[in-house]
Nucleic acid binder design. Sequence first.
RNA 1: GGAGGGAUGGCCGAGCGGCUGAAGGCAACGGUUUGCUAAACCGUCGUAGGGGUUUAAGCCUCUACCGCGAGUUCGAAUCUCGCUCCCUCCGCCA
Length: 420
Amino acid sequence: MLDLKFIRENAEFVKINTSNKNATEHVDLIISHDERRREIIQEVEKIKSQRNLVTKEIADLKKVGKDASEKIFAMKGVSDQIKELDDELGEVEDVVKLYIMQIPNMTHASVPIGKNADNNLDVRQWGEIKKVNHKLNHIEIATKLGIVDFERGAKVAGGGFHFYTAKGARLERALINFFLDTHTDIHGYTEMMPPFVANRNSMRGTGQLPKMAEDMYHCQEDDLFLIPTAEVPLTNYHNGEILRAEELNKRICGYSPCFRREAGSYGKDVRGLLRVHQFNKVELVKFVKPEDAFDELESLVSDAEALLKSLDLHYRVILLCTGDTSFASAKTYDIEVWSPGEEKWLEVSSCSNFGDFQARRANIRFKRDANAKPEFLHTLNGSGLATPRIMVAIIENYFDGEKLHIPKVLQKYVGCEFIA
RNA sequence: GGAGGGAUGGCCGAGCGGCUGAAGGCAACGGUUUGCUAAACCGUCGUAGGGGUUUAAGCCUCUACCGCGAGUUCGAAUCUCGCUCCCUCCGCCA
């Protein structure tokens, strides 16, 4: 959510920046309603002030035992007048809130302006395309080795769900543990095991609601959503709180399954593990001082990259253009890993700086010192990493035609050197 | 699921419908004093939103906020109703 005052004072900038994100805005509507809002406030507060004055006079009269019925009579009806204005104020404020929540975060000046993924900027690449002596994709290999079962996943839960089986399950678990261990032991994150469902307030706080409601699984009876990412519980961990400056910059990480209905995405890159309704991910979240946010974004990306280097997987980092940057983000880097089977880059991480956008929605602030005014802090998050496409890359890159070699760093977790 | 109890500022904790934006304590901050640490004393010390003023930090003023939302009343932290969360006990369950 943007600051109303900011919108008022930078209307043109907000309009342009929003359209750069291919989003629509109602800035004019917000501003006109805000004007009416301030009109009403002035009017109603004048009446309230009057009422408070007379009320005090009544109290004084009663205290000395005098008759106040004349003044009391005069005040009859004033409350109704106030209520009427307050009601209108509420309506006007609801409109402002409704539309202000729909304005995306402003992208940072360093973000290239562009319509879609074609305009994204290639920042750097690491490693190189490995020669593989097979022509199989991950589905064929995984099925052959018996480490993923797509058919039974579909039988039990539906299309887009799968089982990891036997050593496949072990390998998946190994990835999760390797990721968590690296972030906690080396990168300075504190591990959290969050709830896998969240309420509306949390979903609104991180920006999934209202826009993404259709993409989430919802438990109607309890009005809870299955989390689409651990970003939701991890960021909302501090919802409504004021942190001390010494606690910043704070890094937390956590594993969770991620649930995505992905309504409407059928037919595109959905084979096998490429796009599924439930997947595992280790998420990195930072709460930082505003002035550190963009530096922290760079280190966040490199924390995720470190994992790919350890796994010796060829990857590239791209800077998303305005049109490809998500609703709540000010700047986003994606990390993509090379898939020999698909002959494509696969997104395995998305690292974003949200500025104060989420903090404002979730009301997360900090004080620079004991007497300072609370300020909104800045939040960041990134995947470190999402496992399915890493699994694809490992399966395709490490299969030698007969057996699947286990990357060195994972061997102690999997307990073997290869799967045959 | 059943029965009770509770929610007040950064924290603890008072609060007969008007004198309570809220006592008192702690913490924090500024200062005075004592040859260090400390103690004592004085002062400051919530948030948000309007309006005014200033080049600005700021200052002045009004309004709202005692879990959330409605209601009663001239007037609600205080009374009524609904909701949420927390605690205790019972039941059920991993």
